[in-house]
């Protein structure tokens, strides 16, 4: 398929930005005449072409009936433009939320559409992605979901989402944009670690081997069920022998001294490491284990809970 050269896209983007004047960079937009754009759709263009053909035929044969049909078609198109404009006027679209997404899945944004008056055939379009088409009664609210374009790990500005309707007859495109001032994070794809060891521990200043000894040899604190990823030397083998239940010995120093996730301690290329870290962050959060995260360009202090997880994942996405 033909692909536009990059500079064309850039040029297009800059022209768009100039024309739109940041009018659409809000989390909620009410469609009014300044923010509604109307043009004949592709079908409408072809429709006009047929009208033109009819016009030429009518002129050539001096046939009033054919001329009338040509005029009728043009008038209907103008009506369609007016009706289409009226259809979306007063509609408000509000950004609701975006789901957590891990590469290679694109995040899905949710918008609430609220119609002042009866409103037909609205859909959201993000370049070649489309939401379902909804029609709203007067004062009705509906939630519409649309996928964003970004599916690779990273941080993105919000896509400019088109709010479009082809009502009536499909002859016109009446559209507007919404570009919420939100940052979109696509987290790395979580990949489980092949080798589970204690390298994770905060031992950057030591050699790896010593660290195992050092880690939490203080007072015994409690036994917790074994979870994958815990160093095997912490397993209470005594218990295992008696009950065949894998329990982990937790020492006071463990609880106080954090698990330290470190980018440098992992193997593989950057993306692979980030993926592994992502997996660990989620695992540890699920197990309510506190941890810190060290990336070459960032350090996140020890923490726990959803917010901590989010901060870590965002840091991973930003890397």
């Amino acid at each position: 398929m033909y692909k536009r050269p990059a500079f064309v896209n850039q040029f297009r983007q800059s022209v768009f930005n100039k024309l739109l004047k940041n009018k659409h960079k809000t989390n909620e937009i009410e469609l009014q005449h300044k923010t509604i754009y109307v043009l004949p759709s592709k079908l409408g263009g072809q429709f006009l072409l047929i009208a033109l053909l009819n016009f030429v035929m009518g002129i050539n044969y001096q046939n009033n009936l054919i001329l009338a049909m040509a005029y009728l078609m043009v008038v209907v198109l103008v009506f369609a433009i007016l009706t289409g404009y009226k259809n979306v006027r007063g509609l408000s679209v509000k950004y609701l939320s975006i789901n957590e997404s891990y590469a290679p899945n694109a995040p899905i944004a949710r918008f609430q559409i609220h119609a002042q008056s009866h409103c037909d055939l609205i859909k959201l379009v993000n370049e070649n992605l489309e939401s379902e088409t909804v029609s709203l009664q007067s004062k009705e609210k509906k939630t519409v979901e649309i996928a964003l374009k970004c599916s690779e790990r990273g941080v993105y500005g919000f896509d400019r989402i088109k709010i479009i309707s082809h009502f009536p007859f499909g002859l016109v495109s009446v559209w507007s944009y919404i570009e919420p001032a939100e940052t979109v994070y696509v987290y790395p794809q979580p990949i489980a670690l092949e080798k589970l060891d204690t390298q994770l521990h905060d031992n950057a200043e030591h050699d790896g081997d010593n660290a195992q000894v050092k880690a939490g040899n203080d007072d015994f604190h409690q036994l917790t069920p074994f979870v994958q990823g815990t160093a095997l030397n912490k397993v209470s083998w005594k218990h295992y022998a008696k009950t065949e239940q894998l329990l982990t010995k937790e020492f006071t120093s463990d609880a106080s001294q954090e698990l330290a996730l470190n980018f440098n301690m992992l193997s593989g290329n950057n993306e692979h490491r980030l993926s592994q870290l992502c997996f660990l962050v989620n695992q540890l959060t699920d197990q309510h284990i506190a941890f810190s995260l060290t990336l070459p360009n960032k350090h996140i202090a020890k923490g726990q809970g959803i917010n901590h997880q989010k901060a870590c994942l965002q840091a991973l996405a930003e890397f």
Partner: peptide
Amino acid sequence: QTVCLLVFFNLSTVYL
């Protein structure tokens, strides 16, 4: 939709 557009033209030719 394309068929519909063609019909608009076909209908006008009836007037010939």
